[in-house]
Each structure stands twice: as structure tokens, then as C-alpha cells.
């Protein structure tokens, strides 16, 4: 079975974000593999261990520098990868079309993984769009996965610790959630090995993807400024507790 993992090259969540021209970020910050995608890779490797002969392929739409993220994916165990190089920002509608074309051109997906969302655009939807384009079933925020001959059983995390259990036919699309597994850090030999694994580079224009009639475009980006002015609550434990109660009552009006 061929397992495709759609990965994204995103700014480190701890990076300081500077906005340029009021509509894009200064990209001179540390970029890395989207954290949720690590769970997708880890799960793919587990499936490959269960079904020897499977192939795990990481796919990324991003700038040339995204090769770094693909190397990370391969250090974590992906066999090879595909980079669709593009400097432009693509919305989830276009991204899904492009990823679908790249996967279709490359092989025959038995499973497609994504992270449940990317930590930069936080759109939460590309997995569903890929599923719809392929006409594959989709589950997102998957925290448990059992694979059988022609179906998968997944638990998806709902609110308050509640899970839904779905059965999906194969092929299908899985949006990996954080509870799915614990990604391991690659060892030094893994990293060395990943440097020798192949990265297939495709030009976006070669995929001949038609432009969708719908889109989402970022027209302005501004920093979220903190406007809070902290005020200290002093006293002993009892006095502090009493002051908090007063704030909750008088100011916040929640009790």
C-alpha cells in the first residue's frame, strides 16, 4: 500500500512573527514540520511495520526551503518525498487541488494523511477538500487508528474527552490529532539516512491544475496586540481569594 502524508513547512510556533506590507510575514524565521504532521508520519510508519512492503511518501507544497521539512519527514521514516515548489501562498482550495494532482501523478494512494490543521493558517479543512476531490471518506482529529484489510476504524476527539468512532473504507483520508501517538525524535543515523532518500521536485506548472472558481485571500494581516494592563492582587491567601471573588462578582459579573 502507498501511504501519502501531506506535510506543511510552517514557522516555529515560538518564532517572533513580523508583518510586512500589512499582508504577509517576514519569512526569515525558523520553519519546521507542522507538529500535527509528525503524528501522521509516526502513524504511517506503524502501519508500514504492520504491512511490510508499504511505501510512505511525504508530499509538500511550499517554497524550495520546504525540502528541510521533507528531510525531517524522511528522518522520521518516510521512504521518499515529493516537493511541489512554489513561492506563492495557496489557500486550502488550491492546495487540495495541487496535492491531489501530485499524488495522482505519483502513484495509487491507499491512505492519505494530513495533520488535523496547520499551525500557521489554522484552516482545519485541507484534509476534507482532498477527500472530496478523490471521493474518499475523511475523518479528522483522529486519536486512534486500527487498520484492517479493507477498512479502518478511527476514534476522533470531540470536546470534553468524548470520542466518536467511525469505520471508513480504504482508501481514505486521516487528519492526525495530537493524541494519536507519541512521535519519536530521529536518531543521528536516521538523519544521515534521510539525506540519501530521494526528493522528487515537481514544478507547479507541470501539474496542470485548473484554478478553482472559489478562493480565500488574505488581504490584511496585523499583529494581535495585548492591551492588558496587569494589576496586582496582594494580601495573604484569604485576602487574595476574597479580592478574586469580588472581581468575579463586580467586574466580570460571572457569579
Amino acid at each position: 500500500m502507498q501511504i501519502y502524508i501531506c506535510v506543511k513547512h510552517v514557522p516555529d510556533s515560538a518564532a517572533h512573527i513580523t508583518i510586512l506590507d500589512k499582508n504577509r510575514i517576514e519569512e526569515n524565521v525558523n520553519f519546521l514540520l507542522n507538529p500535527y504532521d509528525e503524528h501522521a508520519i509516526t502513524e504511517s510508519i506503524k502501519i508500514k511495520d504492520k504491512y511490510p512492503g508499504s511505501e510512505v511518501i511525504a508530499v509538500c507544497l511550499g517554497k524550495q526551503d520546504a525540502e528541510k521539512t521533507l528531510r525531517s519527514a524522511m528522518a522520521m521514516g518516510a521512504d521518499r518525498s515529493i516537493l511541489i515548489a512554489s513561492d506563492a501562498l495557496h489557500d486550502s482550495i488550491a492546495t487540495a487541488r495541487i496535492l491531489k494532482a501530485a499524488i495522482e501523478q505519483d502513484g495509487n494512494p491507499g491512505l492519505i494523511f494530513t495533520g488535523k490543521e496547520s499551525i500557521d493558517s489554522e484552516g482545519m479543512q485541507t484534509q476534507f477538500r482532498i477527500g472530496a476531490l478523490f471521493d474518499f471518506p475523511v475523518a479528522t482529529n483522529v486519536v486512534r487508528l486500527d487498520i484492517e484489510a479493507d477498512a479502518v476504524i478511527v476514534d476522533t476527539q470531540m470536546s470534553g474527552g468524548i470520542a466518536n468512532t467511525y469505520e471508513m473504507t480504504l482508501p481514505c483520508v486521516i487528519g492526525a490529532g495530537r493524541g494519536l501517538n507519541t512521535p519519536g525524535y530521529p536518531t543521528f543515523p536516521d538523519v544521515v539516512k534521510s539525506k540519501k532518500k530521494p526528493v522528487k521536485k515537481i514544478a507547479l506548472t507541470d501539474l496542470l491544475v485548473e484554478t478553482a472558481h472559489s478562493s480565500t485571500n488574505i488581504i490584511a494581516l496585523e499583529p494581535l496586540t495585548q492591551t492588558r494592563t496587569p494589576e496586582e492582587i496582594t494580601g495573604n491567601a484569604k485576602e487574595i481569594a476574597l479580592k478574586i471573588v469580588n472581581i468575579l462578582k463586580e467586574e466580570a459579573k460571572v457569579i
Binding site: 489554522e122 477538500r129 476522533t156 470536546s159
Partner: peptide
């Protein structure tokens, strides 16, 4: 944009390739 919404609205958007902004 609750757990239910996150499992429903992107499905709808994908079916008709409509634009969607979550959260």
C-alpha cells in the same frame, strides 16, 4: 467552530468547493 462544527463545516465546504473560514 466547536468540535462538531470542525467535523461538519469543512465537509460541507469540500462538497461544493466553497470558501470557508474556521474560528
Amino acid at each position: 467552530s466547536t468540535a462538531m462544527g470542525k467535523d461538519l463545516m469543512p465537509r460541507m465546504a469540500a462538497l461544493i468547493e466553497a470558501p470557508l473560514i474556521m474560528d
